[in-house]
Each structure stands twice: as structure tokens, then as C-alpha cells.
Design a protein around this nucleic acid. Structure first.
Length: 254
DNA sequence: AATCAGGGCAACCGCCCAGGG
DNA sequence: TCCCTGGGCGGTTGCCCTGAT
């Protein structure tokens, strides 16, 4: 028994959007605003699925979108954020004004993956592809290292990318003073086990997000400066007021 | 000039989750 | 508490363009 379709597919257009459809959608949203995507197509006179309208608006028609090539700085920021967040494209997109999750996802798959591979880095793990170390999951506890990073950020006012860079460098240096890591060494896995591990990882990531939220009353989304979006579920409507990134409890698969 | 292969990207699909009744 | 709905997300598909042969 499947889920009921989001719309009546028999009477909807598919494929590329025409100029006229774009114009209708833009005109409707300008007049009525976003929201209620299911009823929007009918109200706007479009033979499209509501989800299709939403996607078209978010990924292509929104006026605040930045078109054009990614800069080198954006590349590096995407790589750093991906190393911390994994395939959380919407979270990554939240740190890149004018870029969409879909755009970043495509850009990652077509450009950055290749770029990392050419540098000898595995894009999935952000480790050297020549390393033959076992699969290691590292959980970062509240340690002096974290406090130091936070203090450094406060005192120097360094931006996110520098801060993340510091964090990453610190974590890639196991001998760093005061580093407090929980290490879980995975056994060699079969395909089924791999799936179970993935599920466990997803659960841990979710609970880590909850941990952050409970700890500070802020969600990870807000910690990253994202008030809008799915990951922002915190109680604090002034999410940006917290000037410190807090990755405590955030796990990272290296 | 025609054909083929590969890359880039817009769009779709299926699933998940929060919120409301 | 359960069920349904809407919104959102990540993964995948397929079309189009470009360069090579």
C-alpha cells in the first residue's frame, strides 16, 4: 500500500518548464507569496505538480539566487562544510547565500568530487585515498580543544571558514594538546552490516542534533546561522544571536 | 558532416518528519 | 494516540550540449 500521490499526475505536465509557466509561477508568488504548494498550481493556472512548482521556484526562479560559477572560496567552504556535515546539502546551502541545495549537490558531484580525487582525497571520507586505515568513527566530546576553539573565535572574530578550518586542522592532528576523542573502531563489514552502520550513523547524527538543541536551546541549523530550513527546530527565534558555533556532540565520520 | 561519449544540470521520485485534526 | 497531509530532503534520472573521432 503506497502513499497517495501528491497530485493528480494524469493531468500534470512534466519535464522542462516553459517561459509561460515560469511567468505564471513568478506572477502568482509575487502576488500571493510562497506556501500551500499543493493548491498553488490550480490557483496559478498551472498544469504542474505542487512539488514541481516548489522546486522550480526554489532552484531557479527565486530572485535572490546567485547565478554563475562558484568561486574558489565557495569551493573550499563547501568542502569544509561537507567534511563536517556530510551530504546535508540544505545545511551547506544555508551557508552559501544565493546557492541552492540542488545546485551545490550537482556541483559537488560534477566538480568538487573530481577536484578532491585529483588531490588524492576521497570525497566521501575527506581522507587521503592512499591511506589504508580502518573505518574510524570519531565522536567529539566537550573538551578543552573545543573551548579553546570557541575562545579563539570570540577573541579573533574569525569567520566561519577560518573557524572550520581550525577545527578541521585540530581534528586531523590526533596529537594535539588536550584533544579528547571517543574512538570507535569498526570491524570489516559486509554489505548488510554497512547498511546497519549507515542507519546507526543516521540515528546518531539525529540524536546529536537533538543534543545540541537541548544543550543550548538551539538547533544545529541555528548554530550554523540558518533560521529557515528544515534543520531549524529550535525554540529561539533569534537564532543568530548566538555568536559561537557549537559542534559539541556532532559526530564526524573520518 | 555525422555519430558517439561524457559532462552538466534541471527535474523527478520516494522517503521522512512535523504538525494538525 | 493515531492518522493524514504538506513540506522538505537526498538520491537518481534523463535531456541537452559540447568535444572528440
Amino acid at each position: 500500500m503506497g502513499r497517495s500521490p501528491c497530485c493528480e499526475k494524469a493531468h500534470t505536465n512534466k519535464g522542462a518548464w516553459t517561459k509561460e509557466e515560469d511567468d505564471r509561477l513568478v506572477a502568482y508568488i509575487r502576488a500571493h507569496g510562497e506556501g500551500c504548494w499543493r493548491s498553488l498550481p490550480k490557483a496559478a493556472g498551472l498544469l504542474r505538480c505542487g512539488k514541481s512548482c516548489r522546486l522550480r521556484w526554489i532552484n531557479y526562479l527565486r530572485p535572490d539566487l546567485k547565478r554563475g560559477n562558484f568561486t574558489e572560496e565557495e569551493d573550499e567552504l563547501i568542502i569544509k562544510l561537507h567534511s563536517l556535515l556530510g551530504n546535508k546539502w540544505s545545511l551547506i546551502a544555508g551557508r552559501l547565500p544565493g546557492r541552492t541545495d540542488n545546485e551545490i549537490k550537482n556541483y559537488w558531484n560534477t566538480h568538487i568530487r573530481r577536484k578532491l580525487l585529483s588531490r588524492g582525497i576521497d570525497p566521501a571520507t575527506h581522507r587521503s585515498i592512499h591511506e589504508t586505515l580502518p573505518d574510524v568513527t570519531i565522536a567529539f566530546n566537550r573538551g578543552e580543544e573545543e573551548k579553546a576553539a570557541v575562545e579563539r573565535k570570540n577573541s579573533t572574530g574569525e569567520g566561519l571558514s577560518q573557524f572550520l578550518s581550525h577545527q578541521q586542522q585540530e581534528r586531523q592532528r590526533p596529537e594535539a594538546d588536550g584533544l579528547n576523542l571517543d574512538l570507535c573502531i569498526s570491524l570489516p563489514y559486509e554489505e548488510e552490516e554497512e547498511e546497519q552502520q549507515q542507519q546507526q550513523l543516521r540515528r546518531r547524527q539525529n540524536s546529536s542534533l537533538e543534543a545540541v538543541k537541548e544543550d543550548k536551546g538551539l538547533c544545529l541549523g541555528c548554530c550554523l546561522g540558518l533560521q529557515k530550513g528544515r534543520e531549524c527546530r529550535c525554540r529561539n527565534s533569534l537564532g543568530l544571536s548566538m555568536g559561537v558555533l557549537d559542534y559539541r556532540g556532532l559526530e564526524m565520520k573520518l
